[in-house]
Write a protein that binds this DNA or RNA. Structure first.
Length: 709
DNA sequence: CATAGCCGCCTTTTT
DNA sequence: GGCGGCTATG
């Protein structure tokens, strides 16, 4: 251990060796933060702390898995609990289910399940799904849950028309989840927070168990997570939080940057360690990131101290359209490969998932192998969801969503009408859908044939339920074969072949689970699987280029990074309120900051002049963030070909603007010129309008008139 | 009761 | 552009 400590910087060593009491590690990108955490776990153990008494919380399952491995290589093998917040909550809720007033075999509802429940809830409240769109309602409810406002207290607070309706919807939604014994992602946190705060016994026991709590990516914790953390260390205050306010990118999901900013206020005796040295990126890449993030006003000053020399491999490229942009990326990747770069050291980032398609096509065309980091995609496949639905029912028969999904898959003649009759019966007699199915003999509305079919189905499920112990893989395989799913896929001929292979892969994964899990069980497996995330699919050892969203890039690093589509409307994204809300603009800027700081030596940023959005070819505006980078916008891009013959003619008519010039815009009103980038016809102007918003506009379309006083 | 085809709608980011 | 839901048809 001493030897290892010698390799650390003084700041890192200070954090690693910190004994007891609250500790905050403000760690810039590439500062060896993860290393500090794993070393700290090892150091605690060496100092005599039992691994069993240590709990480390990571942002994703992948990060947890990696941390377990790193801790293992340091000799801190086994015992320490390392998982995400959500995983930890599942464990706690299962163990203290009765105190939390839930059943331990709850289903975890993912987004699509939530939408279904919310649709039903809006319907139950007899409200119009147009004005009260399930997605929006879900967002509103999620925000409330993140703030630990439950349905009852929200109803008591509701005043105006909208909040009153929302409170009804919230109650109805919780009701539906309750009937189905389901919890959504936010419930996991909310119920755990309430459990810890309302049951001192449970809180004591967990404080006793987890004598040291370490939380990574603390800047992205939400209020519920904050309250859980607070409760978990309330008896001993041994909290160690690490994070970087400049990398907070989950505000929209309830992450509250104030948690990290107010850490010293929450724990006044906290030791604060800053890690500002960067061991990852070339000096000039870091300078770009620094220049960009300096535009964020609402931040704590932090230095980015390079330890690596500059690289010459930084570029900003303008492309004609997204197809050529993708082609340019593929070409540059080919160049890199020729120079001996490994594909696994290359990544392409984009703002929205939909942008991966063009890139895929370009990479395929150039025969460059790639992986799309989208973990949940696999679990979204029809055949996978079908099999998992069977397994979910075995664990939780009240899971109506899962039941409805497969009651007639493969087709067994139980149709819509039959299902409705059973649902009616269930509602009348206040029993779950599955209970109603079991009592099918009593449902008079059903034909004899329908009853018989339902009986066959129920007895099959009951047969499976009788023997649920043993390896999950074996059980999955058995259910797959005996439910008729296997047969129906085989019958589909070559079409079903791929599906069969996917199921095979699922069963493989289950085998892995059986081998690795501490206490394998179908219940645990089903609950854990619901918590997978995109980054969990990232395979660092695969010899391929990685494609992912900027969000998924968090926590990773690559030798060469491409970031595409840096245009107004994409970054900052049009759906954000970036024009009016400074905080949202700053979050978008942080997103680009995160992307840039993933790069070790090569950074290639690009944008397209035209882009097809939802089937329509649109003229784009380069992102205002490009103007904030040191390199600025590259006017001399290679493919800056004549796409518009009028270029030269128009240029002469193009008005020139000086900084500070007062201008008037048709809709935005008066404003002052903050920046003017002369690019002939493509000139861009940044205007701060008197309304408070700052816009970057294409001069040729903005139709600005100069106001001279 | 199953399926094909068409219409309309759209929170981008995710635990 | 793509998915979900509704409808018409077999």
């Amino acid at each position: 251990m001493d030897e290892i400590l010698q390799q650390l910087t003084p700041s890192q060593r200070k954090a690693v060796c910190h004994k007891e009491g609250p500790l905050l590690v403000i760690a810039g990108p590439g500062s060896g933060k993860t290393r500090v955490i794993t070393h700290r776990i090892a150091a605690l153990i060496e100092a005599g702390v039992r691994p069993y008494n240590i709990c480390a919380i990571t942002f994703t399952n992948k990060a947890a898995e990696e941390m377990r491995q790193r801790a293992f290589t340091l000799g801190a093998s086994g015992g320490a609990h390392i998982s995400t917040f959500h995983s930890l909550c599942v464990r706690i809720l299962r163990r203290y289910a009765s105190q939390a007033e839930i059943k331990p075999n709850f289903s975890i509802y993912d987004e699509s399940d939530q939408i279904r429940c919310m649709k039903q809830a809006v319907k139950d409240c007899r409200l119009d799904a147009g004005n009260f769109s399930p997605a929006r309602m879900l967002g509103a409810v999620s925000t409330l849950k993140n703030k630990l406002i439950d349905a009852e207290s929200f109803r008591n607070e509701a005043e105006d028309f909208f909040t009153t309706r929302l409170s009804e919807i919230y109650l109805a939604y919780q009701n539906i989840l309750g009937e189905r014994n389901g919890l959504d992602f936010d419930d996991l946190l909310m119920k755990t927070a309430f459990l810890l705060e309302d049951c001192p016994d449970v809180c004591d026991e967990l404080n006793e168990r987890f004598k040291f709590l370490l939380i990574d990516e603390y800047q992205d914790t939400n209020h519920a997570q904050y309250r859980i953390a607070k409760a978990l260390v309330s008896r001993h205050n041994n909290i160690c939080a690490t994070g970087d306010p400049d990398q907070s990118i989950y505000r929209w999901r309830g992450a509250d940057i104030r948690n990290i900013l107010a850490f010293e206020h929450d724990w006044p005796d906290a030791t604060v360690v800053k890690l500002e040295e960067n061991f990852r990126s070339a000096a000039n890449i870091l300078a770009e990131a620094d220049a960009l993030i300096a535009y964020n006003r609402n931040r704590k000053q932090k230095k980015l101290v390079p330890t690596k020399p500059a690289s010459r491999d930084v570029s900003i490229t303008a492309c004609e359209d997204e197809i050529r942009e993708a082609q340019a990326v593929a070409q540059q990747i080919n160049e890199l490969a020729k120079q001996g770069a490994s594909l696994k050291d290359i990544a392409v980032f984009y703002r929205v998932n939909a942008m991966s398609r063009v890139l895929e096509e370009a990479l395929l065309h150039n025969q460059i192998s790639y992986q799309i980091v989208r973990g949940i995609e696999f679990y979204r496949r029809r055949e996978i969801r079908d099999l998992l639905a069977y397994l979910k029912i075995l664990v939780n028969p009240d899971d109506e969503i899962a039941l409805l999904r497969i009651i007639n898959i493969p087709a067994r003649g139980i149709g819509k009408v039959t299902i409705e009759k059973v649902q009616n019966y269930a509602a009348r007699h206040k029993v779950s859908f599955y209970e109603a199915l079991k009592k099918v003999e009593n449902i008079e509305a059903l034909s004899k044939a329908a009853k018989a079919k339902i009986l066959v189905f129920v007895s099959m499920i009951e047969k499976f339920r009788k023997d649920m112990s043993g390896p999950v893989a074996q059980l999955s395989e058995r259910v797959f074969n005996e439910s008729g799913l296997a047969q129906s896929l085989q019958a589909a001929g070559p079409e079903g072949q791929n599906d069969l292979e996917n199921v095979g892969e699922l069963i493989n994964a289950a085998t892995q689970y059986d081998q690795n899990a501490e206490e394998p069980s179908l219940l645990d497996y089903i609950q854990q699987i619901s918590l997978f995330s995109d980054t969990d699919a990232y395979d660092a050892s695969s010899e391929s280029v990685s494609l992912m969203t900027l969000h998924a890039a968090k926590g990773l690093e690559f030798e060469n990074v491409f970031i595409v589509g840096i245009e107004e409307g994409l970054l900052p994204h049009e759906r954000t309120n970036a024009s009016e809300d400074e905080d949202e603009l700053e979050e978008e800027r942080r997103l680009l900051f995160v992307g840039i700081t993933r790069a070790k030596s090569g950074l290639h940023i690009s944008y397209s002049r035209y882009r097809t959005v939802r089937g329509q070819l649109l003229r784009t505006i380069p992102s205002r963030f490009l103007l904030e980078l040191l390199s600025g916008i590259d006017e001399q891009s290679e493919d800056n070909i004549d796409y518009d013959d009028n270029d030269d003619v128009d240029c002469e008519d193009m008005p020139c603007f000086e900084l500070g010039q007062l201008v008037r815009h048709k809709t935005f009103g008066l404003g002052r010129v903050q920046k003017y980038i002369d690019m002939g016809q493509n000139s861009v102007i940044v205007v701060k309008f008197n309304s408070g918003m700052t816009k970057s506009l294409m001069v040729q379309y903005a139709n600005l008139s100069k106001i001279d006083l």
